[in-house]
């Protein structure tokens, strides 16, 4: 026997890439090791109810036909940020679609969940799997409003516009609605104690390109530049971000050039007609809920890991046994 048994050499060679693969897996995996005990509402962020001052932004999540009590929370953070920052800063737990990440939010507070059947047009048993852009017949529509102003359907994606300090961010589930009948959040954009004051909000120009990465002019900290991009009838698709259904209502004539602070804008509804809402204090733990809904077991990952290790051991033993049998 001059050369070593070929099979064992093969086994040894086979072991090397396996080790490389395992090391690659291990290198990339530790990031997954941290598991924050997250609740549906993250109580460490924001506080329930409306914002008390003009510093923060109030976030309203209206489940509409999905059922469930509307949630109102405040992100009291004084710094500027995007709509996504407002939503997360208020403590809501969201999920973005796999294709676009958090630029397209498909679940808020685990609604619509993966096991929930949504009767959208053309598919009575639609289930949102959060992989690609949700259908225009069932998605979370994104609204915003200044304090005391009417809700406005956002022409910008959630990551591409800044929230209005002291104002409102609204999320309303749009089921089988068109661009004109999208339901606005059923909570008037009025902070308690400020009712009756005029609507004060910056005019937000429509996007002028279809580039999904385009940012609202002036977003990112400054308040200047309002109204400068308001002319021009572009913005047809408005990007993929949060408006799958909005066709835009561009006419032949460009819209009138708005003033920087439009005081004559439609005012908010009467807050007396608000639907019942909570601060989400009693919302169930999303992680726990997902686990129950999916039938996940704490033991299954251990079983999977155990099976993988056992199979690797068996592989090695088999390779050795076959090598010996071949040499014999």
């Amino acid at each position: 026997m001059i050369r070593p048994p070929r099979r064992t050499r093969v086994a040894r060679r086979l072991a090397r890439p396996l080790v490389v693969l395992a090391v690659a897996a291990l290198l990339a995996l530790p990031a997954g090791a941290m598991a924050p005990g997250a609740y549906a509402i993250d109580p460490s962020k924001g506080h329930p109810g409306f914002c008390k001052s003009a510093k923060g932004v109030t976030v309203v999540v209206d489940f509409q036909q999905l059922g469930g009590t509307t949630i109102v929370r405040c992100n009291p953070r004084g710094t500027r940020g995007t709509g996504l920052d407002a939503l997360k800063g208020a403590g809501f737990q969201i999920a973005g679609v796999q294709r676009w990440g958090e630029a397209f939010i498909c679940r808020i507070e685990n609604r619509p969940s993966a096991v929930e059947k949504i009767p959208i047009k053309g598919n009575k048993d639609y289930q949102e799997s959060c992989i690609d852009t949700p259908p225009a017949a069932g998605y979370w529509s994104y609204w915003h409003a200044g304090n005391n102003c009417a809700w406005t359907y956002s022409q910008w994606g959630v990551k591409n516009r800044d929230f209005i300090p002291g104002g409102f961010e609204g999320w309303s589930f749009s089921l089988n609605a068109t661009a004109d009948t999208n339901p606005k959040p059923r909570i008037a954009a009025v902070r308690p104690g400020t009712a009756g004051r005029p609507c004060v909000a910056r005019y937000e120009p429509k996007p002028t390109s279809t580039d999904p990465n385009a940012r609202q002019p002036g977003s990112g900290g400054q308040t200047a530049g309002a109204g400068s991009g308001g002319s021009g009838g572009g913005g047809g698709g408005g990007g993929q971000t949060t408006e799958p259904g909005s066709g835009g209502r561009e006419g032949a004539l460009p819209p009138p050039r708005p003033r920087a602070l439009a005081t004559g804008r439609p005012a908010a509804d009467d807050p007396a007609r608000n639907v019942a809402f909570t601060g989400g204090e009693n919302a169930p733990d999303v992680n726990q809920l997902v686990k129950e809904q999916s039938g996940a077991s704490d033991l299954a990952p251990w079983a999977a890991g155990g099976a993988a290790v056992l199979l690797a051991l068996l592989t090695w033993l088999t390779a050795r046994r076959r090598g010996r049998a071949r040499d014999a």
Binding site: G32, Q93, A95, Q98, A114, Q127, I131, G295, P301, A303
Partner: peptide
């Protein structure tokens, strides 16, 4: 039946969940 566990969400970092049937 349930796509949750087949495409683990990465919004909150956690160990991916797993249920018995696919395993």
């Amino acid at each position: 039946v349930d796509p949750t566990n087949l495409n683990p969400s990465l919004t909150n970092l956690s160990w991916p969940l797993l249920s018995w049937p696919p395993l």
